[in-house]
Write a protein that binds this DNA or RNA. Structure first.
Lengths: 241, 241
DNA sequence: CGAATATTGTACCGATCGGTATGTTTGTAG
DNA sequence: CTACAAACATACCGATCGGTACAATATTCG
């Protein structure tokens, strides 16, 4: 048995002396009871609850039930509801949102097809039967505008809301094929239009529309930015309408 | 002074005898204190609160503060929160949503211009500085999908959500110019696309985008349904991009 | 085995939720 | 004036909100 002093915090003051919080530990090397749940799985479950009900609508009872743990475990593992929301949002972005960007950069595929695959992948996620309908970010951005959310949560979701448009703008400004088609001239406007479209399909999917119906929306959107289905070279794999 | 018996309710029972609630009134003709608020103005204010915060996010404290009355007055005038929401939703539809349909039926105006005016009128409402940003219905439909709303409120907002698409479909199927352009063949699909677009702009407006930016979205959407700005006859009043 | 540590379940906290009972005020009718 | 009715303001109700204190239970180390 030994004694050790661990510094765990400093209060910054304007005076010469600082106050330090210290902890006295009699036995630094000692285990404890093991976590009875998988933290990643619990975070995934929390994400699903927020995805379905939003920040306000997701009560701690909903969360703990969905995650299969109880409140003290939740607070020990994730801080509080706001912190859990921030982590769930980041998990959503990393796990669900960002992987879909790869469709944009798939070499050897024509621009229109890459954009179409990208948009359809997003749409597919919005209509997936295994997840809540619609888009996590779109839902929570709408909620955040009501000024009903704590500050950090609002900041996080606000950043997430700007992510897609910034990425698409950057993409359209730098992609060779996009430049050849002079889409880079209006990159911001086109990106805004596409992001508006997927926010629209998110709303429609959440309202109950299915993938098959909304697929036609994507094709009309591509027509809207000057990339109709039967473009000049007849190398298109399909031509509808 | 006289006495009168007024029947105000019957409890239906499975037995031969029914229990009736009666009220004894000594003086049927007697006034009372006057309402100190305008019911329509109060409903308008409630609508604004729901528009900004949604059903769940709008607490009774928010509502009574916005409406300038206190809780007992609210319950006397509108029933309860759910009933107030239903009435506020109907008020929104009658006052804000439906009047915009007139742009569609304006005789002597080309189809594209009518559609454009209709869509821009909606967009204008979504970006109006004097109202909460976005669309009341779009917000609450998204909220309703989380199953956090009472049954009647959910029904009302669900009906409201289907309204625009049904109207646009009917319009495209019957309008002469639309039929001449064969838009009636795909009326449902086109209506779905347009409704998706305005739901998208509602989300973007709520996220902070302004009218000027989103105006370009409307023009691209019209291009998406085969009505580009510079259509065959050069009678168009403007040609951008 | 204890001693120390971390997680668990339960039971509880103050605040706020939607909703209401109650007494006072303001109005009308006789 | 008195009798009555309707709306007002206050204060309160049980339920639920997010968040925690606490004791019991595992787990690791000496």
């Amino acid at each position: 048995m030994f004694v050790e002093i661990v510094l765990i915090g400093i209060i910054v003051s304007t005076h010469r002396w600082k106050i330090c919080y210290i902890r006295l530990a009699h036995n630094i090397m000692a285990g404890g009871r093991k976590l009875e749940f998988n933290k990643q799985q619990a975070l995934e479950a929390a994400m699903h609850v927020f995805w379905k009900k939003g920040f306000l609508g997701a009560s701690l009872a909903d969360l703990t039930e969905g995650m299969g743990i109880n409140k003290p475990s939740l607070y020990a593992a994730f801080g509080n509801k706001e912190s859990l929301f921030v982590q769930a949002t980041e998990h959503y972005l990393n796990t669900y949102a960002k992987p879909k960007n790869e469709h944009l950069y798939h070499t050897g595929t024509p621009l229109r097809e890459r954009l179409r695959n990208y948009l359809l992948a997003i749409l597919s996620g919005q209509c997936d039967e295994d997840n809540p309908k619609g888009c996590y970010v779109s839902l929570c951005v709408a909620e955040a505008a009501g000024e009903t959310m704590p500050a950090q949560a609002q900041n996080t979701i606000s950043q997430a809301g700007n992510y897609a448009q910034a990425l698409l703008t950057e993409f359209l400004q730098t992609d060779d094929e996009a430049k050849a088609l002079q889409l880079d001239q209006e990159a911001e406007s086109i990106a805004l239009f596409l992001v508006t479209t997927v926010n629209g399909t998110a709303a429609m999917a959440r309202a109950g529309k299915g993938y098959a119906e909304l697929e036609t929306v994507i094709d009309r959107a591509l027509t809207g930015i000057g990339l109709p289905a039967d473009t000049r070279p007849p190398v298109s794999d399909q031509d509808r309408c």
